[in-house]
Amino acid sequence: MADQPFLRCEKLVKRFGPFTALGGVDLDVYSGEVHALLGDNGAGKSTLIKTLAGVHAPTEGQIYIEGAPVTFRTPRDASNAGIGTVYQDLAVNPLMSVTRNFFMGRELTNSFGVLNMKQMDEITHDEMLKIGIDISDPSQAVGTMSGGQRQTLAIARAIHFGAKVLILDEPTSALGQKQQMEVLKTMMRVRARGDIAIIFITHNEIHSKLVADRMTFLALGQVIGSGTKAELEGEDIRRLMAGGAEMADLEQELAAI
């Protein structure tokens, strides 16, 4: 593990008009680690990653990559700097083939703009295999793939096109049990490469405990706790998941109704 974080945020603030979506967030993300980002609905997780992905410009604060301050004006800037985002909708096109999705917008062509289909098929097959899916037919439509396989496609694509930080927005939330495990396995395979940092956004305490090296908890736009898995104990995690409330208090509240 590197001792310098690959990506670092300092006191990120994002306001939408009078509304403070992020109120000074610090985040350190290391290569070869899974960093779970947890928090309730509306806590600001999506806003945070959109800021990292160049979709929103931060109102205040600074993002650093390998120690150097960076400013992203567009998602392209962020992607060129090695930030690959896999959104909840995955940005795949169901009617198109696996290969055509993989290279969408970044097709390999000869100098006349003619596609090198064979080469693209091979790369797609190899890159998918590397993270654990053996697609027999890269010309099969993505619509025929399972949710987990689509997730893998989006991840493999981001990595192939140079992602050093992989941001996964709730990659397991829309999947069944078995496919959730597939995605977690995929994440661990990417982690094992050692050169890619993963930001894993989730609601699921168990999933985060299974794969995360480090966790950051957001509530109402602020970090209410963070640390390595070893530093955070079980009860702690549960309390932080609940937005800082004690379980006992919650039980009392429920009983009072």
Binding site: Y87, A91, N93, P94, L95, M96, M104
Partner: peptide, 15 residues
């Protein structure tokens, strides 16, 4: 194809 299938994902991928 990408534009007609899903405009937003095409755009997100630089089409």
């Amino acid at each position: 194809f990408a534009t007609g299938d899903n405009k937003e994902s095409a755009r997100a991928n630089g089409v």
